[in-house]
Simulated scan of single mutants.
Amino acid sequence: MNDEWGEEVREMCNLSQGIEEKGIRKGLKQGIEQGITQQKQNTISFIKEMQKKGWSAEEILASLTNIEIE
């Protein structure tokens, strides 16, 4: 009887570990997607703000990519 219980406990532990790992992967994926979306929104807001200030497309691009304009 002990061996049967031990095996069931091991199976349940493996199952719960698998569920936890799947949840972690899902959470990481969602976090990365949210971060990318937020960065895109921030970049768009920055571009619009710089356009309002009269920056040229080249100046905005240089600012975003840290490239100097000659």
Rank of each mutant, 00 (worst) to 15 (best):
M1T: 11
M1R: 13
N2M: 08
N2E: 14
N2P: 02
D3C: 08
W5S: 13
G6K: 14
G6S: 14
G6D: 10
E7T: 08
V9L: 11
V9C: 06
R10K: 12
R10N: 11
E11I: 09
L15D: 13
S16K: 14
S16I: 14
Q17A: 15
Q17E: 06
G18C: 04
I19G: 06
I19W: 07
E20G: 15
E20W: 15
E20K: 15
E20P: 06
I24W: 09
R25A: 07
K26G: 02
K26Y: 03
G27Y: 09
K29S: 04
G31S: 07
G31L: 11
I32P: 03
E33P: 00
E33K: 11
E33H: 00
Q34R: 14
Q34F: 08
Q34K: 13
Q34E: 14
G35D: 02
I36L: 03
I36M: 00
T37P: 01
Q38F: 04
Q39I: 05
Q41F: 03
N42P: 02
N42K: 09
T43H: 00
T43M: 00
I44G: 04
S45F: 03
K48L: 11
K48A: 04
K48C: 02
E49M: 13
M50G: 07
Q51D: 00
Q51R: 15
K52V: 03
K52H: 04
K53T: 06
K53C: 07
W55Q: 09
S56F: 05
S56V: 11
S56Y: 10
A57Y: 08
E58D: 13
E58F: 07
E59A: 02
L61W: 11
L61T: 10
L61Y: 12
A62V: 02
L64Q: 00
L64M: 07
T65V: 00
T65Q: 02
T65Y: 02
N66H: 04
N66P: 01
E68H: 05
I69G: 01
